[in-house]
């Protein structure tokens, strides 16, 4: 199957400083792909090149079979139409984009629906992002999290085939975040390809089929969250409480064997037993630590 997004050798410099340094990337149709990385690592630059906001210095980029550069300063006959056709198929949720303070949620969503040839139903979209009760509220009365949901509503109103989300849940409370994750999963079920950047590792773990870690402009790892940085085969930590009431732990490549031995030793239940692999956060921090 052809990739929804294909990137080869992407490079971008700002005044000589390298922001993106040879990124290769494939995202399959219907996949949720999370891009992780510290601030200034090149995440936003990479995503904004894919979104058609920025020009690249070199490399090949294709989003839904189209070079996003058509949407950025492209001229000539047919380019404008091509850019528009491509924009019809791509949804974007940026960081901190402007609101329309004096308009209501319903007015803004209905207005953006007009830009697309086959938009979703504004009422249903507003409901899906959880703003049904706020449909008639002016947008300046919304909380930070509610504004973000409006951003998402505007990103999906055109029924995009690819949806870009730049740190979509910053400022959400845990409950709102979980609802938002469900919304994203529903979109995936509907066939949408999703690329999101995030600082929340649990978000990447909960949502993403694959995670890419970007540091210093390079994509240093691309794996499913469960196997990122060989987490699944990394040394595990087994901890338990000894008969003297002291917490004890040991790092081992064979945790099952250790647990077996402990079970034999205690003749059944081992007090306060835990077996832990490195968390996504552990491997992530180790990875970006290696590069920095």
């Amino acid at each position: 199957m052809e990739s929804a997004i294909r990137v080869r050798g992407l490079r971008k410099t700002y005044d000589g400083a390298v922001a993106v340094d040879g990124v290769d990337l494939d995202v399959a149709p219907g996949e949720i792909f999370a891009l992780l990385g510290p601030n200034g690592a090149g995440k936003t630059t990479t995503v904004e090149i894919l979104e058609g906001y920025r020009k690249r210095d070199s490399g090949e980029v294709s989003v839904l079979g189209v070079d996003p550069a058509v949407a950025n300063g492209g001229r000539g006959t047919g380019v404008l139409q091509e850019a528009q056709r491509w924009r019809n198929r791509v949804g974007i949720v940026l960081q901190g984009t402007g609101e329309f303070d004096e308009l209501t949620v319903g007015e803004v969503v209905r207005h953006f629906a007009r830009f697309y040839p086959g938009p979703d139903d504004p009422v249903s979209v507003i409901e899906r992002v959880g703003l049904k009760d706020k449909a008639k509220a002016r947008t300046h009365t919304l909380s930070g999290g509610q504004k973000r949901r409006l951003d998402v509503a505007l990103g999906i109103i055109g029924r995009p085939e690819v949806l870009f989300l730049d740190e979509p849940t910053t400022g959400f409370d845990p409950e709102a975040r979980r609802e938002f994750w469900q919304l994203i999963r529903d979109l995936q079920t509907g066939g949408t390809t999703i690329v999101l950047t995030t600082h929340y590792l649990e978000e990447a773990e909960a949502l993403a089929d694959r995670v890419g870690v970007i540091a210093r402009g390079r994509l240093i790892a691309v794996d499913p969250p469960a196997t990122l940085g060989h987490r699944e085969s990394a040394q595990a930590t087994v901890s338990w409480r000894t008969a003297e009431g002291v917490l004890k732990s040991t790092r081992t490549a064979t945790p099952t064997q250790v647990v077996n031995e402990l079970a034999g030793e205690y003749g059944g239940e081992v007090p306060a037993l835990t077996v832990a692999r490195p968390t996504l956060e552990d491997v992530y921090l180790e990875m970006i630590g290696d590069v920095a």
């Binding site: 058609g52 528009q84 924009r87 984009t97 830009f115 040839p117 505007l154």
Partner: peptide, 12 residues
């Protein structure tokens, strides 16, 4: 500054 223009730019 508020990103309203950028938002429009990202639509068709």
């Amino acid at each position: 500054d508020r990103g309203v223009l950028k938002r429009f730019l990202g639509t068709p």
